[in-house]
Design a protein around this nucleic acid. Structure first.
Lengths: 137, 137
DNA sequence: AGTATAAACGCAATTTAGTTGCATATGAAA
DNA sequence: TTTCATATGCAACTAAATTGCGTTTATACT
């Protein structure tokens, strides 16, 4: 899997700019879904808020970054490349996150087959909520 | 299959108020996920914005209403009772929504088994995205 | 290398979503 | 019918995300 962010940006039809490279580098380091506020702080010297949102938009559109909703009132973002497709379990008490691999392909097939209105199911987002072992006591 | 909103509110530990009854009635009529802005307009005479949010909070907490995120920058809400558990496919081009039944129980079991940090998986949210037949052309 | 141009950028202002504090009103239980 | 916790409304506020616009810059093409 490539750490070649430059190529990634090119394939996304985006220009290779210092700001966007810094963004990808940060997401790559984090390896977890992070809120925009966090990226904003980390990248103050590279991208302002507006450019950050626009970059994220472009990257999500190109499938390079995933937008995730944990029902926290704001989006989280995670690098979608370099790792197998996965989902997250979130503790509703302490917000701990754990990655979880899960195979949605049979479900996707069933949904596509069942649907009357849709020509294709291109994407899905799934989050699990629960109680972590610490909070469960 | 009860349309007995009064009982619903009571079991949720909530008081039976005209505003909350009107809210449930509206969600019942709609039978689809609606944004808060929509409810706000429909219910101006019954509940102001703040009371609406607080009522939704209570109902979601009690499992009577589901909060759904279509990546539109705001939440949608749908009545969770009176209907089998289901998910939604959203057209990324025109926002058409179609309900879809899908059985996540095997997935949930797999996730729970696989998880190291979590004691229980209590909930999940899944949305599918795609192109409807109209937009696909 | 030099230049043209569309994409990216930064800043200020704005919109939209959701929340807090507090005083008042009201449903439900005794 | 009194009591009291819960629900409500309003105003003010915080936070999230977007728009408009003038400037800069990466890249494609001489």
């Amino acid at each position: 899997m490539s750490t070649d962010f430059e190529t990634l940006l090119r394939t996304a039809g985006s220009k290779v700019t210092p700001g966007r490279l810094a963004l990808l580098k940060t997401l790559h380091k984090e390896r977890r879904p992070v809120p925009v506020s966090y990226l904003e702080k980390k990248l103050t010297k590279n991208l302002d808020r507006v450019s950050l949102y626009r970059a994220l938009d472009a990257l999500v559109g190109a499938g390079i970054v995933t937008s995730i909703d944990f029902h926290h009132g704001h989006s989280h973002f995670e690098l979608a490349v370099e790792r197998p497709h996965h989902h997250h379990i979130v503790c509703t008490s302490c917000d701990t996150i754990e990655d979880t691999l899960c195979d949605m392909t049979p479900i996707l097939a069933a949904v596509a087959k069942q649907s009357k209105k849709f020509a294709q199911v291109t994407n899905h987002s799934t989050e699990f909520f629960g109680l972590c072992r610490v909070c469960a006591r």
